[in-house]
Write a protein that binds this DNA or RNA. Structure first.
Length: 300
DNA sequence: CATAGATCCTGTATGC
DNA sequence: TGCATACAGGATCTAT
């Protein structure tokens, strides 16, 4: 569920409600979300107990919270993860996986506040990154995101044009550009009027800059809408939030008319999920028969 | 090396 | 009603 805007909203919520608090107790209720912490759940809990949370940072769809120990709690929400700040008396969520009981920076006592990792499908997870306060080495391979002031547009164009993959697949490759997921990839491609199967090697720099600009627009709009709902004592990302629904032009709109030209939106299978596009505004690349071997076709 | 596809997990919606 | 299948907003491992 969460792409860059949703994760950024969570980060802001953490920044507002969790920074400066001490972790007084950690309860791992399901082993899977801490699977990337190779030393195990007990070690995970031990490294975090009594530590002070000093920040909330993000790279693409990854979040991390630096600790006073110099380590960091590294988090990824996967497809269904949530980080919630809740009063301790709030009933446990059905898919509550990890509970952090929080206290004051100074004293040992609990504040009655908890940080909860809730995740139905458990593709997401938590780990402790040793010395990862500045940038966890585990995510050093993740590129900057298009909203990052240090994002390098020229580098993105150069790297994309070296790839013989469809532009949609490239947009989803977090080592090329981070934060873009299935929805915003489709939305950005619709805005840029490019089909997702167009090969990176065959796209012009202007076309790629158009995609980047479109991705920024879509994300900025989502951030504007989602950014208002984290004020409560509650680090947002309400599962199915739905706040972005209104502004979607293609995603989930199979058969409905394109907002630009009226043609019916198409849906095709893509990487075990779906791609949506307007067949007129985003014409698919021509397909020619592969030469000598004659085994199948390649988009040109 | 680069790339496409399979895979982890749980739940809900839909069709027969 | 029961059962099977498709699908869900991600990242990574594996095969080619």
């Amino acid at each position: 569920m969460p792409e860059l805007p949703e994760v950024e909203v969570v980060r802001r919520g953490l920044e507002a409600h969790v920074i400066g608090r001490r972790i007084v107790q950690v309860e791992v209720r399901h082993p899977r979300p801490v699977r990337r912490h190779l030393a195990g759940a007990d070690d995970f809990a031990a490294l975090l107990t009594d530590r002070l949370l000093v920040g909330a940072r993000r790279r693409g769809k990854y979040l991390w919270m630096p600790l006073d120990s110099g380590d960091a709690v590294l988090a990824h929400l996967g497809r269904s993860g949530q980080l919630l700040v809740q009063p301790a008396r709030a009933p446990d969520e059905r898919h509550l996986r990890v509970r952090f009981s929080l206290g004051h920076a100074a004293g040992p006592g609990p504040t009655g506040l908890e940080l909860r990792f809730v995740d139905q499908r458990m593709f997401g997870g938590l780990s402790v990154s040793p010395g990862g306060a500045e940038l966890p080495p585990e995510i050093a391979h993740i590129a900057r995101d298009p909203m990052d002031p240090l994002f390098d547009d020229d580098l993105f164009v150069r790297r994309t044009r070296r790839r013989a993959s469809g532009i949609k697949r490239i947009l989803l490759d977090q080592t090329v550009v981070s934060g873009v997921g299935n929805i915003y990839a489709d939305e950005a491609l619709w805005r840029a009027q490019l089909h997702g199967d167009r090969l990176g090697t065959r796209l012009r720099p202007t076309e790629l800059r158009r995609v980047l600009a479109a991705a920024r627009e879509v994300m900025a709009a989502a951030l504007r809408e989602g950014g208002t709902s984290f004020d409560a004592l509650y680090v947002n990302v309400n599962g199915e939030s739905g706040y972005f629904d209104r502004s979607l032009h293609v995603y989930g709109r199979e058969g409905r008319p394109c907002d630009r030209c009226g043609t019916a939106i198409r849906r095709v299978a893509f990487m075990n999920r779906s791609s949506y596009f307007c067949p007129r505004c985003q014409p698919p690349p021509r397909v020619r028969r592969a030469s000598a071997t004659g085994s199948g076709t390649v988009p040109v």
